Amino acid sequence: MQTNATHTHDTPPPYSSLVAVGDSFTEGMSDRLPDGSYRGWADLLASRMAARSPGFRYANLAVRGKLIGQIVDEQVDVAAAMGADVITLVGGLNDTLRPKCDMGRVRGLLEEAVERLAPACKQLVLMRSPGRQGPVLERFRPRMEELFACIDDLAARHGALVVDLYGAPSLSDPRLWDVDRLHLTAEGHRRVAEAVWQALGHPAEDAEWRTPMAATPPPAWVARQMAHARFARQYLLPWIGRRLTGRSSGDGLPAKRPELLPYEGPAA
């Protein structure tokens, strides 16, 4: 059973705090700000919520590269203890991209996370993560869809919302993805923030996030080959190297916003 990403309430409840849990998707890669830091959909969502709730507090525990076991070990209990009104949990996708992935273990850990977080907040938000068009995704699509089926089931059992980004063809557009082909651009993150905003019961603020981008002429063959070569050299080979050596891009990095504090961030 899939939870629809809309509310039946005319006016959503006033949420006064948000805690975001997860990996690079929730950290905000690749929505880079001029100072080199990352913004992302969770920051954009927090900005919107803060504009409507004086004293609004926000924490973002997400760290790039984290597997679901690390999210459970390092973030879930911290998030549950904060007593926030809304908690977002997005995790498990990094696991599905590993060559040796035990989906039974992933499902069990995700269930453990939801069982701890759902009672600790007024509204838990889960997501079916967006998927970029391309041959790499096709290889891992069965695992991803198994993960999403688990998310739907957990949401139905624990009263969580599911934001179905995977089911929105607009978000599979390669133009909404960074050159690393793993992370959304600023426009992609803006659309995700809008999707979560609507899922929490708010009326649409921006252009409908499901609307596909306007068509543009495809790049020339030479440009495509150059882009493929750059991607392989700068992103794919280092990514494979980390997989083979058991390292992660997030090793040693702290949480983005480790404490639940008043938020005055980038404008939405």
Score class of each variant (00 low, 15 high):
165 L>H: 01
92 G>N: 07
97 L>F: 15
86 V>Y: 02
231 F>D: 04
158 H>T: 03
224 R>P: 06
83 G>S: 09
53 S>V: 01
107 R>V: 01
99 P>Q: 03
93 L>D: 09
101 C>D: 09
40 G>A: 06
11 T>Y: 00
265 G>Y: 08
143 R>D: 10
130 P>K: 02
13 P>G: 11
98 R>V: 05
212 P>K: 04
266 P>H: 11
227 A>H: 03
136 V>E: 12
2 Q>P: 14
11 T>H: 12
10 D>A: 15
4 N>W: 01
58 Y>K: 10
124 L>S: 04
201 G>M: 08
91 G>I: 01
158 H>K: 05
53 S>E: 07
257 R>W: 09
67 L>T: 12
16 S>V: 01
249 S>L: 12
33 L>R: 15
199 A>W: 04
80 A>V: 08
154 L>A: 03
200 L>D: 08
64 R>N: 08
10 D>S: 14
167 G>I: 05
257 R>S: 07
164 D>Q: 07
97 L>G: 11
162 V>A: 07
262 P>D: 11
88 T>N: 10
42 A>T: 15
137 L>Y: 13
36 G>F: 03
107 R>E: 15
126 L>S: 08
98 R>A: 11
82 M>Y: 02
89 L>P: 12
161 L>N: 02
206 D>A: 13
105 R>T: 12
162 V>C: 05
31 D>P: 09
210 R>T: 13
30 S>T: 03
13 P>E: 14
245 T>P: 01
192 V>I: 15
69 G>D: 15
146 E>Q: 14
78 V>D: 14
118 A>T: 08
132 R>E: 04
141 R>H: 04
23 D>V: 00
53 S>T: 14
29 M>D: 01
174 P>S: 04
15 Y>E: 06
170 S>H: 06
175 R>N: 03
85 D>F: 02
112 E>L: 13
188 G>I: 00
123 Q>K: 14
27 E>W: 12
121 C>W: 02
161 L>P: 00
157 R>A: 12
18 L>N: 08
20 A>V: 13
241 G>K: 09
163 V>C: 04
234 Q>I: 00
112 E>I: 00
197 W>C: 11
45 L>M: 09
60 N>C: 14
162 V>Q: 06
134 G>R: 05
213 M>D: 09
195 A>D: 07
112 E>N: 05
90 V>A: 14
58 Y>C: 04
61 L>F: 10
16 S>M: 01
193 A>C: 09
179 V>C: 02
8 T>H: 14
223 A>G: 07
213 M>Q: 14
101 C>P: 11
259 E>D: 15
182 L>A: 14
38 Y>D: 10
26 T>W: 02
264 E>P: 00
229 A>G: 14
154 L>H: 06
77 D>G: 05
181 R>H: 15
12 P>Q: 07
261 L>T: 15
34 P>L: 04
135 P>C: 00
240 I>V: 15
184 L>N: 04
79 A>N: 11
191 R>V: 02
32 R>V: 15
39 R>K: 12
130 P>S: 07
42 A>W: 03
18 L>D: 04
146 E>S: 13
29 M>N: 10
202 H>C: 01
220 A>R: 13
159 G>C: 05
156 A>I: 00
145 E>V: 03
158 H>E: 05
125 V>T: 05
183 H>V: 02
34 P>Y: 02
221 W>S: 07
84 A>S: 14
134 G>C: 09
19 V>Y: 12
10 D>V: 12
